[in-house]
Design a protein around this nucleic acid. Structure first.
Lengths: 219, 219
DNA sequence: ACTACTATTAGTACCAGCTCTTAATAGCAG
DNA sequence: CTGCTATTAAGAGCTGGTACTAATAGTAGT
């Protein structure tokens, strides 16, 4: 993962968890020692990189200057640089091919035509009992692909008709191939077929609503 | 596709290609008309969003002010805003990752009869652009419930027919109610209806294979 | 030729969010 | 009481802008 240095050691999961919560309580009333504060500072910026010195100062109940001194000592770049490097790794990712809101890695994308993504089934995708992938992961890969293929501001899944033709096991690589079957003004029908080594495992027809900013449901 | 507006119509591949190349020749010697220039400007920023007005001014051999007027007319945000929105979609990616085991909290379970689960839609479930939940989360909740209701060692989703009837937004609580409709030796048909405050948002019919230790696919 | 209008350019004041530097102050340990 | 660290403050300067006013050039219409 091409993450910038100030983010690199954070668990991605944690990032989002805390990023989400975002309820910035001041770090207690008691003042921390310099070391403690700097450690927390480092964590804080790692978790919520888009935070100004001023906000940090308030959070830790110290002056802005202290925060800047801390950043200097910890070699943490300023906000705008942090934003920029996040944005840059984003562009990197575009190069590397994996895409946004997508489960699975998109390896080919012809907008409004066809797309291919792969998903490696790992332990976290399967039932521990039998090592068979939970269906919703395979569905999510296909659904994500159906969303990604739509070259429009908004794409929402309205309907889907799916069939799992054989179980997928841990270690297997699912290749999903999406093809646009039909396009009307408002909706697009996308067919997704998923395979493990050329053997079909999943087939789905997705009716996607496009653009119309508030129509049906979301994916 | 959660790309910022100023990027939205560009091919991702193209973005990086040109971004990479980055050899900025001045746009000819001849001055273009306003319309031509603005069109090129829009393209240029789409392809290389990290470009300052000054650089653009040089590229088009006009003054910085003209570039700013153009951006104003074209509603293209300033550099720092552009960088920021690219960075934000990057954080979306991080946020979008988790899709755990059992989705939703099961609050009632009558094996082989009915079941209810709730899922609170949080930031990580939605598209940041419009705060609408990604379909696969709503699907996953229903599918998980369909699996849980089966009183057997193994339950795999074989087929599903689903429909999203209205978008679910962040902050809303989805209540999924599952009911067993039909049971034969090998398979069970489960109907799941999901609501937000009694308003239907999702409906699905799941055909589940039970027990038969290796039949169909996984959920 | 005069007027109207568009496009372009210039200049000023202001902003966020910094960096860099100098300097003052508080608190504590030896 | 001295020396040291930590903290805070104050000020200049930077980048990449926004917002606004105003001057100028060129072209078209009458």
């Amino acid at each position: 993962m091409a993450l910038p240095a100030f983010l690199r050691t954070a668990s991605l999961l944690t990032i989002f968890l805390i990023y989400e919560t975002f309820v910035w309580k001041k770090e207690e009333t008691m003042k921390k020692s310099k070391k403690e504060r700097q450690e927390l500072l480092r964590e804080t910026i790692k978790l919520t990189p888009f935070i100004t010195d001023e906000e940090l100062a308030e959070k830790f109940s110290v002056s802005v200057q202290t925060i800047r001194l801390d950043r200097l000592e910890l070699s943490i770049p300023e906000l705008r640089e942090r934003i920029k490097s996040v944005a840059e790794t984003k562009l990197d990712d575009v190069k590397a091919l994996p895409l946004e809101e997508v489960i699975g890695e998109i390896i080919d994308l012809q907008l409004d035509e066809s797309a291919i993504s792969i998903l490696d089934i790992k332990e976290e995708h399967v039932f521990s009992r039998n090592k068979i992938a939970r269906g919703h992961h395979v569905f999510a890969q296909a659904n994500s692909l159906a969303v990604a293929i739509i070259n429009d501001e908004l794409a929402l899944t309205a309907k889907a008709n799916i069939r799992f033709s054989r179980p997928v096991r841990v270690g297997e690589r699912v290749v999903a191939k999406a093809k646009v079957k039909e396009t009307t003004q408002e909706r697009t029908i996308v067919e997704v077929n998923s395979y493990v080594e050329n053997e079909p495992v999943f087939k789905g027809e997705f009716t996607m609503y496009r653009s119309a900013q508030d129509t049906k449901e979301g994916s």
